[in-house]
Design a protein around this nucleic acid. Sequence first.
RNA 1: GCCCGCUUGGUGGAAUGGUAGACACAACAGACUUAAAAUCUGUCGGCCUACGGUCGUGCCAGUUCGAGUCUGGCAGCGGGCACCA
Length: 844
Amino acid sequence: MSVRYNFRENEEKWQKAWEEASLYKTTEDPPHFYVLEMLPYPSGRLHVGHARNYTIGDVLARYKHMCGYSVLHPMGWDAFGLPAENAAIQHGISPRLWTLENIQLMKQELKTLGFSYDWDREILTCSPTYYAHEQKIFLDFLKNGIAYRKESFVNWDPVEGSVLANEQVIDGKGWRSGAPIERRKLSQWFFKITDFSQQLLDDTALLDQWPEQVKTMQANWIGRSEGAFVQFPLVGKEDVIEVFTTRPDTLFGASFIGISPDHPFAEMLSQDNPTLQTFIAECRSQGTSQKEIDTAEKKGYNTNLTVQHPFLENKTLPLYIANFVVMDYGTGAIFGCPAHDPRDFDFATKYKLPILPVVKSTKEAPLPYEGEGTLYNSNFLDGLSVEDAKLKAIHKLEEKDRGTSKTIYKLRDWGVSRQRYWGCPIPIIHCPTCGVVPVPENQLPVTLPEDVTFDKPGNPLDHHPTWKYVSCPTCGEAALRETDTLDTFVDSSWYFARYCSPSSPEPISREKAESWLPVNQYIGGIEHAILHLLYSRFFTKALRQCGYWNLSEPFKNLMTQGMVCHETYKDQGGSWLYPYEVERQKDGLIKKEDGTPVYAGRSEKMSKSKCNVVPAAKMVEDYGADTTRLFLLSDSPPERDFEWTDAGIEGSWRYLNKLWRLVTSHLSDITMVNLEEIPVTFTEKAFQLRKLTHKTIERITHDIETFHLNAYIAHLREFSNAIEGFQLSEDSDRWVLCEALTILVLLASPALPHLTEALWEELGHSDFIYQASWPIPDPSLVQQDIIKLVLQVNGKMRGTLDVSPSIGEEEIKALVLETLKPHLQGHPLKKFIYIPQKVANVVI
RNA sequence: GCCCGCUUGGUGGAAUGGUAGACACAACAGACUUAAAAUCUGUCGGCCUACGGUCGUGCCAGUUCGAGUCUGGCAGCGGGCACCA
């Protein structure tokens, strides 16, 4: 028996044995437990952030299997997306081949980490066997009124002549061309997620095992607001501007009306007004992202038109076209009350508009003031609270037929059209006669052509010589295929269902899906808290509406792991550098290759686009899978972000060897032990070890159930330290040692599957440890017979007292006062606080 | 800008409102060794008059017998903001 653990030999041996035994093939017998980690984008290499995510899932999957569940633990690839097209443009490689090569590499890396995936269920979203079903779902959405077409804006790069993603717009300019980006209107496909706003909001109540922060973020995203629509007739014109407001109470403080540059009325006004056209064009030169709109300088165009105030006959308000008003929210028009809204305040200050306060705070508060208070300067609302004034203002508006109460949502419909090649084709044909015609289901899938080129700007599907030219399925006349593809978020909005029946001829086998779903434990990065998770929830409800199943929520429990972050580096030319390309010297960072200076940027979540990734493969190569897994688990709690450092991996490697030695060096001591035959008596030290053994089972079971996985590892280490210090003297000690070692190996197995598999065999077992049962603690050994009571004087710790848990309060009091005598110095007792089993506090 | 988080020794972190720093990493000292590696032992928040005391969980206030933990405010850092995934 070698003293040092040979991870290379051992890990390879057992991975092969597991595969030959099809150990991780899903079984269907109940009870079921579905463990799912968010599927990765195949960017090329597995980095430590991925490895952390999957290790967390693997611990749970193995643990649940040992607890007797049939575990579904699948893995797949979110294989469509922009990076493949960028690779095609840069290196001339086909997006498909690039993606498949990456998948092959990453799959190999995943396998070396020893995860318990059922690879028979692997999904590639870029495979026609997957996206055919997505196209069927799209057609069902269309039939059920969930998919529809409307016009909407995209980022347009006028130099490249193509649509850019938000990520490709940097400071308002195209990332490759550097040209200022325009917002351009295109006709695109949308999913009617807004029909489900209230349901999505209400059903968060069902998600009791989701982190509060995620539910809060989703609720804020859906953004239900109660308020009013208010009509402002234009003075001297027929038109009426309708605004949405959540603050009808502040109508008497209104000093202007702002409408979005994209508002139909603004477009109408601009028709014979070149100055206004220029202004609108300027507004549209902002990108489409919310952040850009919010942080851009407030700008307005005075139309010189005025509107009538709903309550005051003699009051009119100027009508501005304002860049901070968005068309997608409410009516695309607001009334500005500068005294009580910061954006309106900025705007009014800039254009010297009146700022009339109408809500008085109880305390001195600077303007703009958004809090509670009493109305003044407000005619019939004077003296009312904000809440009451809202109701009364709405009531009055309704009475005068100038407005109505209204609840609206910030959530917008989901635009799913992408003007790109590497995505799921939208199964639609545009016929000059019949209009929009769905591709008949028996002609699915609409597959992507392989012979595409990326030498021209724009969508390769659009300028493919033949692909889009088809005949109309309805009338047979010449027609055109839709050349837009689906947003890749669509692919990941239903994959969890496909895993339940990966080869079913229908998109989803209702029987299988309903037997496995909702996912018992979903694990992934907190960065997906809103979009991916909300889209998946929407899909689940939309699929129910289309009759796919009777399921309302996809993920029962959600665990959001924190991000693994790393410093970012750029060279002199501004190109991103990988950490391994950078060397740290006394006076700064240099590029290893040529010694030129390197600039360190802020620490960010690991992502391929910024090169700040640490590949997992190197660690596995140098230290093995188990050490890597142990390190990723032990260093920080899963839900917390952490800054990556290499320091500490050595410590994990040492622990692995320690475990190996601990068990193998005692094998000869315990060979004769039969764990079925419990000795009648134990020595005191053996009894203490038994108690720790069972206490450890209890703690670790709890740690895994609650995802305190760093505590899990700490408790394993504590337990090993205790076993290490245990000296054999009697025969019954051997039994206790054998029990402790066996349980140690079992408890370590979800984290360290290879090492524990070898030790399990050494301990004389012929099955795989994955097939063994998770240990159950003996309740009589877990009970505490002596409590360490903390003694305090005025809340400060002054000592401890060992007492029996059954001791009475009076008895305790006497004992405590006696023990603390030196600290009391004869002061009279004011209060005695006793929290059984915890603390006794003497207040003097 | 808006929404959501996070902040504890040199470092990662532990702590159902009840002994702050478990378990590790790094460092230092020692044992073993011809030597190295490996392994083992010890020290390891600051200050003080040091077998004791005192301060200490980003900053300021509050609630409480008692606050790292709860409440309010501030600062710094991170995530998301609808076409990165």
